[in-house]
């Protein structure tokens, strides 16, 4: 690839790091208005929703059912009170069996 690759990598690293670093490092200790703080507290739950849908439907190209089964199994195990690990391993297990027989 040559030196151009490394310059590109440097650029990629920089523009990825800045949005991660600036808020954590420079918002430190500053009191935010309650409404802003409230919005920021909502973000983990909103972002999880956006990360899951619709991407989970497309984990296997051309087979939406695969993602639907996976999401369904994960949801069920989580609903039954399984922790994150049982949810992850249980879902992989079910889909491994499904993939073997499809």
């Amino acid at each position: 690839m040559g030196p151009t690759y490394w310059w590109m990598l440097f650029g990629m690293a920089l523009v990825t790091y800045i949005p991660r670093m600036v808020p954590l490092t420079f918002l430190d200790g500053k009191e935010l208005p309650p409404i802003v703080a409230g919005v920021l507290r909502n973000i983990p739950y909103a972002v999880l929703g956006a990360l899951i849908f619709p991407a989970v439907l497309f984990v296997q190209e051309g087979n939406i059912l695969f993602g639907v089964i996976g999401a369904g199994v994960a949801f069920l195990i989580a609903l039954l009170g399984g922790g994150v690990m049982p949810v992850v391993l249980g879902t992989i297990g079910v889909l491994a069996v499904y993939s073997l027989f499809m």
């Binding site: 739950y45 999880l48 991407a55 993602g67 996976g70 999401a71 949801f75 609903l79 992850v88 992989i92």
Partner: peptide
């Protein structure tokens, strides 16, 4: 093995669901 690779592609989404659902209850 292909079947394992296919099954593991769900892992991150399963994790997201596993994190979200308990808070949703």
């Amino acid at each position: 093995p292909l079947f394992l690779k296919a099954a593991m592609s769900i892992a991150l989404y399963a994790m997201f669901i596993g994190l979200l659902v308990p808070s949703m209850k």
